[in-house]
Simulated assay, not measured.
Amino acid sequence: MRKIIATLGAALLALFAWTAPAQASTGGSGNPHFVYITPSVSGSNLVVNFKEAGVGAGASVTVSTAATYDFVLGCINGGSNHPKASNKTAFSSSQSASQTFTANAGGNVVANLTLTPPANQLSYLTCPSGQTTTLLSASWTDLSITDATNSITVNVPGTWTVS
């Protein structure tokens, strides 16, 4: 009886050892985490470069990013002057972007997402006749990045000024 149990145990152990590497190479994720998140301004856009590791080779992950676009509009006359301080108004708009990525053979996703300001931002302020609505300043704040597939969110502190 002991010999049968020992043989059966050895067979089960051999079967487990044989299948474990296959599961590790094709199955699930390891320890998903963002290695770096590097935001930068390009024009008026906020480009969020990132690397996420530990998601599993060939895995699909949906990553999204969101931030607040704060901007100040003013009315400028034909002489390029800002005639009245009251014709200057601050606005905020929440912007987001999302995409599904496929991890490389090492289980990493190295990519970027781009946040764009609202297309109609100049329509937020109406100027008097003879004056033009102008963007006076803008910046991005409250940045976050989320891997929805693995339920990971990272808040990135900072302010990125549009020049």
Rank of each mutant, 00 (worst) to 15 (best):
V61W: 00
S139G: 13
S151G: 04
S25L: 09
N45Y: 07
Q131M: 12
V162E: 00
S64F: 11
N31F: 15
S137C: 09
A97T: 13
T126M: 10
A119H: 04
C75A: 06
S137Q: 07
L8M: 01
T161L: 10
N87V: 11
Q131A: 12
S151P: 03
W160S: 03
V162F: 03
N87R: 13
G30Q: 11
S60T: 12
G9T: 06
S40W: 05
Y69G: 10
S92L: 13
A20G: 03
P128Q: 06
P83V: 10
P118I: 10
L136R: 04
N45S: 13
I37Y: 02
T38Y: 10
L143T: 04
S42Y: 10
L46R: 06
H33S: 14
L136H: 08
L12H: 01
D147T: 13
R2L: 11
F101D: 01
T7A: 15
D70A: 15
T149R: 02
A14L: 06
L13E: 01
A14V: 09
Q121R: 07
V48S: 02
D70M: 15
T26Q: 11
K51M: 13
A53I: 13
A138M: 11
T132I: 14
L8E: 00
G78H: 14
T132D: 01
N108L: 10
A103V: 10
G43A: 12
G54Y: 03
I145F: 07
K88A: 15
A24D: 08
A105E: 00
T134E: 05
V48P: 00
G158P: 03
L15V: 07
G79T: 15
S80M: 15
P157S: 06
H82R: 11
G78E: 02
K88Y: 14
F50P: 08
G28H: 07
N155G: 04
L115G: 01
T38R: 15
N49M: 14
S96V: 15
N150E: 14
L125R: 02
T100R: 04
L125C: 05
N155R: 05
V72M: 11
F71Q: 06
G107F: 07
N155C: 10
G78K: 15
L73E: 05
G107K: 00
G158R: 02
G27Q: 14
W160C: 03
A119V: 14
A97G: 09
A14T: 07
F101W: 01
G130T: 06
G130S: 09
G27W: 11
S123W: 00
T19E: 06
G58N: 02
V41G: 01
G56L: 05
W140E: 02
V156F: 02
P157M: 04
V55Q: 03
A20L: 15
D70T: 12
F71V: 06
N87M: 15
T38P: 04
S86E: 08
T65L: 12
V156C: 06
T149D: 08
F101G: 00
N49V: 15
T38W: 11
C127G: 01
N150M: 10
A10P: 00
N104V: 09
S94W: 09
P39S: 07
S29W: 11
T141K: 11
L143N: 01
I76R: 08
V110S: 09
I145K: 09
N104S: 00
T133H: 02
H82T: 12
Q121S: 10
A97R: 13
